[in-house]
Amino acid sequence: MTVAGVLDAIAAVCMVAGAVLSLSAGVALLRFPDLLSRMHAAAKPQVLGLLLILTGCAIRIGTVIDITTMVLIAVFQLATAPVAAHMVGRAAYREGRVRAELLLADELAPDADKFTDKSRDDSR
């Protein structure tokens, strides 16, 4: 087996693994009972799934110009995904989209007032 063949095989494994993660996110999105649980599923294809597929892509293409573009995509994705998740999660909790019967513990509930009051101040 040649070096190129081995590299191709690694790339293929990375990409199939990334695609499987995307599928599991789709399944989780449909199956999980409440919004916050579903959001965990959303984090996966955006982070590890895309990273794996980009790795496969970098191995297959392998020119410096395109790898820098891919690094940039990965950095943007890693920097922005948590912010979006936090905003949606916060909105979900404040909207009361949390199903208490599915929670083992809710340590935010005692402090929740603090945040709703604050949100009024900072909702410019």
Partner: peptide, 22 residues
């Protein structure tokens, strides 16, 4: 809810991005 749809749209976008990269 709208929030469910946003989350799902985000996932769809990630899947689209994966497809383009693939």
């Amino acid at each position: 809810s709208t929030l469910d749809r946003i989350v799902a749209t985000e996932v769809l976008l990630a899947i689209t991005a994966s497809a383009i990269a693939a």
